[in-house]
């Protein structure tokens, strides 16, 4: 983590911007990340969208088609949330909206006005990690790291769901509050795929944060 350099993104953006100048006519609207204004579309005007992300208000001109994920990644340059499948099946894009984890690829940015959006960047920083981030580092809860921001956001909100008494498919008695258990965590994390197969270590990290002994 010591060589983390936030400027690296800026350099990449500059590269994209100069490349986009030549290729602009062929880029889909959502890919126009480096431009301050959304591109002009043939018939549907851009819309003004206010987004509150990690406690900061942003006003963006967006094509209505822009998903929350694309707005956050391509316009706000918060590239922690990843575009894995873009179909809600992999969980790499997980964000926490009003304390609930969602698949940010399956909602439109324009639908999220007035909501509190948290990405991995809002959970912790390299110098001040969220306990779940620290536990993932400690237990090596990743290999390539692509699914990790989604896994961590999902895990944080998942533990809150258990605390709030939300039952799951493996809850034995649904009239009672669910237990903090590894069986519950495994079932509740099924919306996050890790193709490196780091599940075992991810479960170790979650169990530690939850204060549960890993069986």
């Amino acid at each position: 983590m010591s060589d983390f350099n936030p400027m690296r993104r800026k350099v990449l953006q500059a590269g994209v911007a100069s490349g986009a100048a030549a290729a602009a006519p062929f880029l889909p609207a959502e890919a126009e990340g480096a431009k301050a204004q959304a591109p002009k579309s043939a018939s549907v005007p851009s819309v003004n969208v206010r987004l509150r992300v990690n406690g900061i208000e942003h006003t963006l001109m967006l094509d209505p088609r822009t998903s929350l994920l694309d707005a956050v990644r391509e316009r706000l340059y918060l590239t922690g949330p990843k575009k894995g499948c873009d179909q809600g099946q992999c969980g790499a894009c997980t964000m926490i909206v009003d304390s609930r984890r969602i698949a940010s690829c399956l909602t439109l940015a324009v639908m999220q006005e007035g909501h509190d959006i948290t990405t991995i960047e809002g959970l912790g920083t390299p110098k001040n990690l969220h306990p779940m981030q620290a536990a993932f580092v400690k237990h090596d809860g990743y290999q390539c790291g692509f699914c990790t921001p989604g896994q961590i956001c999902a895990a944080v909100a998942m533990l809150d769901e258990v605390k709030a008494g939300v039952p799951s498919h493996v809850t034995v008695d649904i009239t009672q509050p669910p237990e903090m258990s590894n069986a519950e965590f495994r079932e509740r994390m099924s919306g996050n795929i890790c193709r490196c197969g780091a599940y075992s270590n991810i479960q170790e990290a979650i169990a530690e944060v939850a204060g549960v002994r890993r069986a």
């Binding site: 969602i102 809850t171 919306g191």
Partner: peptide, 12 residues
């Protein structure tokens, strides 16, 4: 309901 979809999808 809890047998369907994923935690993220059920929240939406």
């Amino acid at each position: 309901i809890v047998a369907g979809a994923s935690g993220q999808i059920r929240n939406m």
